[in-house]
Design a protein around this nucleic acid. Structure first.
Lengths: 337, 337
DNA sequence: CTGAAAGCGCTAACAC
DNA sequence: GTGTTAGCGCTTTCAG
């Protein structure tokens, strides 16, 4: 079943068929109808491979995900991002090629293969790291990309689609302040990531703004185990915090569990704020107060921007929905001293 | 940068280069070395698009995921499955093309496009449904597939890679029985899915085997909200169960939260078992007793099987690791009546 | 407005 | 063993 068959059945030339399927003018109304009908009857669609070859375009984008097993299956970001990207791509017929890798070498290989084999026309760069080498490497490979990270991530604004991580953390800190908390700790994510830093800095800034002593901060790595460990560390302090802002929900929930284990009651003795609003957040005990970003919409915007970059059109960058702060049961008034 | 450039630089013909890169004999040692070196120096790799066209093979597989937003970002299955597939595919240089859809029509379209545009050489069929039409439709489209589901899913054993859902549920029921529970309820997942049914049937069977009256079962749909609702329903009964086996962790955790809301203590008043062992399971209060499947390994096997099917080699089907049953704090001795 | 023809970069059959 | 050549199915330029 080839374009030739369709052309024959519609009694036109191959190019006429090609023109119709590429939305170009130059085919009469009658011929166009016959062509569409013939294609319909034959169940024909342009072969993506042949198309890719002759247009030197794969009509696909790549996403390389480097993530440890635990975070992969907990992180709400990945599936939502993928779903959003698909949603933004479905109208324009690009496919999404996924690659999951587990270390730096295989990650680099993945990009190199994408580029050299010309499997994709561009990539999404997520989990931006401090001093990330990838933008430069991709430039060298000639592979267009959009970067996906907090707005602070860099100056390369034209291809950075930022979500305002900081705003959420700031609201969390102010919320706790309003509840009377003064010692507000932070459990940060891995310090290699730009978004970890953005969240940490937002916490620091806001504490500063409120005239609070920038309380204790503990480095962790987004896993449950690290969240529990960090929590114990904070509660072991001579002057433990009365509230903790975690860099993600998994650590926050593990932290609540750790607190519970040592008889510290949430929110009575300790208020807890997470980040992500995973679907489980309303269903843990107590329900988790947290920050929600609209990852899906964000990903849609990323997809559309990448299409624009690759096709050389001007990306219409719609405003991203603001972050939400969801107050649930894990935060409460600070205990009177 | 094409095969011609490499051939020229290595002073051989294009076919010699092609042969080397396709692992075929017929090229001398010396020539082979020169070719590999030339390719290395030029940073050349066969263009996937041209390759796909001339071999009539996309060298890629497709995965269509139909899932509601909430379940997408909570379900541990999807990311682990993807990671496992990648792991099984990485050695054989197949790519994975992902498509996320949200309804039946777009799902069907996705498969049709995959087939007609020849974007992929085969697909993974997950979330098998009762009377699933897809295997037949894919046969009509001429698109090979492996099906991914519980072993009971059907007779089409050659392309069904099954994980033994039932064994996990049976162990859960026996565990509860050993703890003295006699009224053991089940909160089932959506009844359209084969795995929901497999889990429900396993529960029923095991209750039967133990000579227990098949306690109450409530239909739910894998979401947290439905798990909470089902739990309330069960606890409202004149003779509420002393233990509940849920079809997934999300419902189980939401169920614990619901129980907690009405003053029913877990595990003192009610024992709870989940299914999946999500990374959060150890960190909820109390830690969740649950069933764990090695989705990653399973997915690897799926990938290798699909490669074998597509390439016409015999799939070596390694034994899948058995399901694990993880006892944590959410199950305890039945209260004496 | 339409049709013929030359690629896109690679593979594989077939001569050398 | 090595090189030549005809496609794979589509796009696109260029005559008609």
């Amino acid at each position: 079943m080839t374009i030739g068959d369709v052309a024959a059945r519609a009694k036109v030339s191959k190019s006429a068929v090609s023109f119709v399927f590429n939305g170009r003018s130059g085919v009469g109304e009658a011929a166009r109808d016959r062509i569409l009908q013939a294609a319909e009857e034959l169940g024909w669609r342009p072969d993506a491979r042949a198309r890719a070859l002759s247009r030197s375009r794969a009509q696909a984008f790549g996403l390389v995900v480097r993530r440890e097993a635990e975070l992969l299956s907990t992180d709400p970001f990945f599936p939502q991002f993928v779903a959003g990207v698909e949603s933004g791509l479905s109208e324009v017929k690009y496919a999404l090629v996924l690659q999951v890798v587990d270390n730096e070498q295989t990650e680099r290989d993945a990009y190199v293969r994408f580029a050299h084999e010309a499997r994709v026309d561009g990539v999404f760069l997520t989990d931006l790291r401090i001093d990330d080498e990838r933008p430069r490497e991709l430039d060298e490979l000639g592979l267009p990309c959009v970067m996906v990270g907090p707005t602070e991530a860099g100056s390369d604004a034209s291809r950075l689609i930022g979500l305002d991580d900081a705003a959420g953390i700031r609201r969390a800190v102010r919320h706790l302040y309003a509840l009377g908390h003064r010692r507000i700790a932070h459990v940060a994510g891995s310090d290699r990531y730009v978004h970890s830093e953005a969240r940490r800095r937002a916490w620091l800034d806001e504490m500063d703004q409120l005239g609070l002593e920038p309380g204790p901060v503990v480095d962790a790595d987004f896993t449950g185990a690290s969240g529990a460990r960090a929590t114990h560390e904070l509660l072991d302090l001579a002057r433990p915090p009365s509230a903790i802002v975690y860099a993600n929900d998994l650590m926050a929930i593990a932290g609540m569990s750790a607190a519970n284990d040592r008889g510290v009651r949430v929110p009575h003795d300790l208020s807890v704020v997470g980040f992500d609003d995973i679907p489980l957040a309303p269903y843990v005990v107590p329900p988790l107060t947290t920050v929600r970003q609209d990852v899906f919409e964000w990903a849609r915007v990323c997809a559309k921007t990448l299409v624009a970059i690759v096709e050389g059109t001007t990306p219409e960058v719609p405003a991203l929905p603001p972050v939400d702060f969801i107050v649930r049961g894990s935060t409460g008034p600070a205990k009177q001293l």
